[in-house]
Design a protein around this nucleic acid. Structure first.
Lengths: 358, 358
DNA sequence: TTGTACGCGTTATCAA
DNA sequence: TTGATAACGCGTACAA
C-alpha cells in the first residue's frame, strides 16, 4: 500500500512482467526481443504484443552488467570551449546515436591529471569504446586504456607511436596552401604563429609552411616562427613580438582561429590596417571567420566529418577488434577571403582564388 | 588456459577478490568502503590494504543495478554548435564531476522528436538527474520525465508553468540596459532582431527593449521588431529587411551573438560603416565579440556560472527531492565597446560607458 | 561486530 | 522449440 502510492510513479516493467503477461518464460521473451534465436510464431507474437502493451524497455544497466560492457562511448576532449570541437562532437554523436550508443562526454582541460581521472571514470562506467582528442602528455594513460582491450579512436591529433585508429586532416598540405597563396599574392616576409612544439597539428602545419617556402626557394627566417599556447592570448603575445621586429612580416599565418583572434587584437591595437599593412590568414574557418571585417581567409576543416568518421572507425573496431589500424586523413580547403590581401594589394592582384577553388 | 591469455587483460578485481585477500566477507568489504556502517579497526585496515594493493574499483554498473539509479546526469542541449553552450556545459561538468557524477550529453537539434528520443534514452540509462535547455515544443515530454520522479533543472530558458528548478539570466534587464545606452548615445530609431516568439529568452529580451523605450517615452515602431530563428541566417535576413526600410534604424540590437553575425554580414554587404551609419549591439559576449572591428558592444552573460549553478541545484534536488522549487536569476552586464557608437558619434559622445561600468 | 544469502534485470547455458 | 536456472558485482536484510 505504501509502495503503491510512492511518488506516483509505477515501477518500470521488467522482462518478468512481459513473460507473465505472455505466459512464457523470461528466456523466451529475451530470445524474441533479441531476435537472434528462433522462436515459434505464436509465442513470438504473444511476446511482442505483451511488450508493446506494457511499453517494455529493457533495462540497459542490467544488460550491461550481464554483457560486461555498455552501449556507452566515451568522448574525451581537451576543451569544449574551443569552438573547433563542438562540430566534431556533433559528428561523433550523430553517428554513435544512430548505432544506439550514448555519448559520455569529458573535458580534460589540457590537464593530464584530469584526463587521467576521466579515463579511469570511463573505464569504471564500462564504456564500450573511446573517442579521444589526445594530449601529448598522457601517452602512458592511453597505453593502459588500450592494454585493457578497449576500442579507441583518436581525432584531430595523432599519438605518434601508438597503434590506434585515427582521423586527422591534411595539416601540412593546408598550411602549404596558405603559404603558396600568400606568396602568389606578393608577400615575402610571412610569419607563422603556431601551437606548442609537442602538439601534433602545430608541428604538421609548421612543416607545411616550411615546405612551401622551400619549394618556392624563399629564405626561412627563424624569427618569423612563434610557438605559443593554442589560445587567443598566445596569438596576441606572438603578434606583438612579430610586429615589433625591425623588419616586421607583411603577413601573419595563425594556425588556428583562436590564435587569430589574438593576432587580430594585436594588429588592431597598433592601428594597422588589414590587409594593407599586414595580412592575416588562419586555420579552422569557424563560423565567425567570414563575419570579420575584412573577412578572414582561412583553411577550412571538415569538423563534422572528422567526428563522424571517428565514430564510424570506433564502431568498426568494436565490431572487429582485430582489424588493422586505420589512419584516415580528411582534406582541408583554402577559403580565400579578404584578410590575405588577395584583392587589396593593387598591382599584386592575382587569380589565385580561382586557381585554388577548384 | 584459453581464458588466461585472452587479450592480455586480466579480469577486473571484484569485491570478492578483495574479501578473499582480506579474509573477510564481501559484506564487510562493502561496509568498510562505504564507510557508513561501523567495522572494527583491524578488519577495516585489512580491507583497505587489500583494496589498495589489488587496485580495486567498485563496478559502477553493478552498483547502479542494485541502487536502481546511476551517478550519471543527463545534459540535454538544443545545439552544441551554438557557441553559447560550451561555457554552460563546462560549468555543469565541473560541478557534477566534483560530486562524482558523470555527464551524459545530448543534442536535440531543436527537434522535438530527437529530444524525445534522448529523454527516453536518458531514462533507459538510468540517469540520476537531468540538466536541460528546454525547447518550448516539448513541454509534455518534460512533464512525463518529472512525473517519473527524476530530478531536473532547466538552464537558460524557463518552461513557464512547469514546477521545476531553473537558472536563467536577467534577460529583460540586460536588454533594457542596451536600449538605455543606445538612447543615451543619441540613437532614436532602434531596431531589435530577436528569436522566435515562443522562445523564453527572445520574449524576455523583447520585453526589456519595450520597457526601456516606454520608460524613455519613445515611440515604438512595430516595423523595427523582427522575429527570426536564433541563427546567423536569421540575423542576416532581418537586417536586410530593416536596412531597406524607408526610414532605416540607426541602431540594431541583435539579441544574440549568433544573430549579430548575420546582421554584421548584411551591414557590411551594403558597405555601411559601423557605428557611423548604423550601430550594432548584441547579447552573449562570446569570445570573438571583442575581436571584431569595431569591437562589438554586447551584454555579457555568465555562461560558466549558469551551468555551475544549474548543476548545484540538481545535486541539491537529488539530495532532497521534496525541497521547494528554486528559480535563480543571474546578472547580465553591459560591455560597452565601439560598435554602439559610444565614442564614434561626434557631438553625441556621453559618459554612459563609465556610468554603466560600475 | 561480522557473515550468509538474496535480489536488482538480463542473457546464456543446459535439459527437457 | 521452450523453460528452469545460474551467473554478472554489488548492497543490505537478517541471523549469528
Amino acid at each position: 500500500m505504501s509502495r503503491a502510492h510512492r511518488t506516483g510513479n509505477s515501477p518500470p516493467t521488467t522482462i518478468r512482467d512481459v513473460a507473465r503477461s505472455a505466459r512464457v518464460s523470461t528466456a523466451t521473451v529475451s530470445r524474441v526481443l533479441a531476435g537472434l534465436s528462433v522462436v515459434s510464431k505464436p509465442l513470438s507474437k504473444r511476446v511482442h504484443a505483451a511488450a508493446r502493451t506494457l511499453n517494455y524497455q529493457p533495462n540497459r544497466i542490467a544488460r550491461s552488467l550481464r554483457a560486461r560492457t555498455t552501449r556507452i562511448a566515451g568522448v574525451l576532449i581537451p576543451n569544449i570551449q574551443n569552438p573547433f570541437f563542438p562540430g566534431v562532437i556533433r559528428g561523433i554523436q550523430d553517428v554513435l546515436q544512430a548505432a544506439d550508443y550514448t555519448v559520455l562526454l569529458g573535458n580534460s582541460d589540457y590537464d593530464p591529471a584530469r584526463e587521467r581521472k576521466y579515463l579511469d571514470l570511463l573505464r569504471a562506467e564500462g564504456v564500450g569504446g573511446l573517442v579521444l582528442v589526445p594530449d601529448a602528455a598522457s601517452k602512458k594513460a592511453y597505453r593502459e586504456f588500450l592494454a585493457l582491450g578497449l576500442p579507441m579512436v583518436t581525432v584531430d591529433q595523432c599519438v605518434p607511436d601508438l597503434a590506434v585508429d585515427s582521423v586527422t586532416v591534411t595539416n601540412a598540405e593546408g598550411a602549404a596552401l596558405v603559404v603558396r597563396h600568400l606568396l602568389a599574392v606578393g608577400h615575402r616576409r610571412i610569419a607563422i604563429v603556431t601551437g606548442p612544439k609537442d602538439a601534433f597539428t602545430a608541428t604538421e602545419r609548421l612543416a607545411g609552411y616550411r615546405a612551401a617556402l622551400t619549394e618556392a626557394r624563399q629564405p626561412r627566417d627563424p624569427s618569423l616562427i612563434a610557438h605559443v599556447p593554442f589560445r587567443p592570448e598566445g596569438g596576441y603575445e606572438a603578434a606583438g613580438r612579430l610586429l615589433s621586429l625591425p623588419a616586421p612580416p607583411s603577413a601573419i599565418f595563425a594556425t588556428g582561429d583562436g590564435l587569430a583572434l589574438g593576432v587580430l587584437r594585436a594588429v588592431h591595437e597598433r592601428g594597422l590596417h588589414i590587409p594593407r599593412d599586414v595580412a592575416v590568414v588562419s586555420f579552422d574557418d569557424l563560423p565567425w571567420a567570414a563575419a570579420l571585417q575584412p573577412p578572414l581567409t582561412t583553411i577550412s576543416q571538415p569538423t563534422y566529418e572528422l567526428g563522424a568518421t571517428a565514430a564510424r572507425l570506433l564502431l568498426e573496431r568494436i565490431r572487429d577488434p582485430a582489424r588493422p589500424v586505420q589512419r584516415v586523413r580528411l582534406q582541408t580547403r583554402l577559403e580565400v577571403r579578404l584578410s590575405c590581401g588577395a584583392q587589396g594589394r593593387g598591382a599584386m592582384k592575382t587569380n589565385t582564388a580561382a586557381r585554388v577553388d577548384d
